[in-house]
Design a protein around this nucleic acid. Sequence first.
DNA 1: CCAGACGTTGTT
DNA 2: GTCTGG
DNA 3: CCAGACGTTGTT
DNA 4: GTCTGG
Length: 258
Amino acid sequence: MCGRTACTLCKEDVQKACSYKNKKTGKYELPKWGRNPKNKQQYMPSYNIAPTDITPIIVPGTNFLGETNRMLQPMMWGMIPPWQNGNYKSHGYSTHNCRFEGLLNSKLYSAPLNKGKRCVIVCDGFYEWKTKGGPRNPYFIHLPQEDGIHVEDSDTWINDWDEDNGWKGPKLLHMAGLYEIWTSPEGEEIYSYAMITMESDDTLSWLHHRMPVILKGQEIDDWLDVERISGTQAIHILSPIKKLPRELKWHPSVYPNE
DNA sequence: CCAGACGTTGTT
DNA sequence: GTCTGG
DNA sequence: CCAGACGTTGTT
DNA sequence: GTCTGG
């Protein structure tokens, strides 16, 4: 399933779209982009993002000695196993998705979970290919938007932001992920992540039997609060029964180009 | 103890 | 058919 | 997720 | 790196 997304905002607009309210001041704050002098990974906006591409990821600032509560870090989609040597894109494992079921027992994913390497993937939306009945069709799945705003049409966006009102542009999807930092033999730090998937709920089961774990509101805060909430507790919060209802929109899509 | 696996989706 | 690269 | 390759020998 | 099977 989820093997293709879209994220079309420029770096600065991603910051604005990911701004969050400081509970003390009541003002919206911009998450800073992580600065890694050694790291060549660059995010490029695209409406056809595939595994091995670099996308914007929200990480807890506490994991990065950041000055902001949340940080943005460009990461490669497809978690590099920590034992990998040599070419990090050819490890032979499918790690762009990771199943929610059995996460605590996974040899690969329990390590980042227990280390608090939780992250949130942001995107305009994702593609899912409907296989039930008729031809194989891609659908684009995204959040409901304000009247007149279409997430797939940037001409309808008004990308305003200020610290009192926050972001007025398109609403981005937030999905639960786990990440690792892999160090190449040359000493370069490569950030990579896996998107957590679950059994589809009523919203999307007509389309496909698996879907990403989509977060909203307090779930985002909790998933990123690795100081206060343990891996096990976080998994509990994400249990499909506990989760807040997902409000999603979709439309049939042409095959993602560009 | 060491050796070997570690992952997903979809399809049959 | 099945694997790899993006 | 899809698209594209899937091979060899010999020569530069 | 870390767990499982033998």
